[in-house]
Design a protein around this nucleic acid. Sequence first.
DNA 1: TTCCTTTTGTAAACGTGGTTGTCAAAATGG
DNA 2: CCATTTTGACAACCACGTTTACAAAAGGAA
Lengths: 153, 153
Amino acid sequence: MDDDFRRFRRGHLGRALVRAKWAFDAQFDERIRAAGFDDYRPSDVEIVARLPDEAGTTVTELVRRARRSKQAVGKLVSSLEERGYVQRRPDPDDGRAQRIFLTSRGERFLRAARTVIEAIEDDWCAQLSERRVKGLKRALLKAADAFGGEDYL
Amino acid sequence: MDDDFRRFRRGHLGRALVRAKWAFDAQFDERIRAAGFDDYRPSDVEIVARLPDEAGTTVTELVRRARRSKQAVGKLVSSLEERGYVQRRPDPDDGRAQRIFLTSRGERFLRAARTVIEAIEDDWCAQLSERRVKGLKRALLKAADAFGGEDYL
DNA sequence: TTCCTTTTGTAAACGTGGTTGTCAAAATGG
DNA sequence: CCATTTTGACAACCACGTTTACAAAAGGAA
């Protein structure tokens, strides 16, 4: 446990990512609750942000987009439905399938989330400069594209 | 759901952080397992990386550093102990306390983790340039310092 | 049509990683 | 000596994910 190791430990890429993501998540959590969504859970976003389709989205389609098991997606959707963010309706063309829609509360959540995220980005810009935050996002997304597989949204 | 929203959704700061961290974690998991630590669990690092002290570290001290409850730390330490990464020894000066030490396997893990992380950073540098990765780390850590609270290590 | 296979979604059991509430035992400070 | 604090354990529970098993509808071929 020499000084070299100590220096490495504090500043390596993994630690930088963990700490920055932790800070972002804490800021998001606090502000989205303050905006009236105090029943928010972190896993909600993975589903809600992937319901863009006015025609409704099936669980199976969400499974592809969110890279989770059918069962996990089904449970997340049930939880969101209980809390009034989404609604299930039977698929008119397929008796097995359900189509999932955002409710108006779900749409309000999505708009509030965008507002919150833009406010956080403003804070980061004030701390780092807008140029650096833009460079940060570009670098992170380029690495994610290169090493993190496809981006299903 | 207009084009503006679609563009925002794919490129905002939160998404960039999530995707980049996901990519990093996947790379780390694969390589640390290949290095012989196939019983690795993501939460291990939070404890192992915070055991720098040759004199041993108490659970209470780890609680402060890892920002987790006593119970969570206790369970993580038990799990690490079962798998041979750490060892508990009674505190000679305090009959209540236990001092936690890395075993030689734990120390090997720490060295392997460093090697793996440096290899991942090399990959990112090859993709983004060394200058950009350095700037990335600086920006992430500066934001974490500003918005993420203290860094206990 | 009937039969077989695939697709869609649910249910049950379980694993990991965290929480709070409670408690015993040791240390500490009047 | 006694009251209080500190240390760490146990039990119960929650959030979020997995695998296994299954019912029901769809789809395709004889």
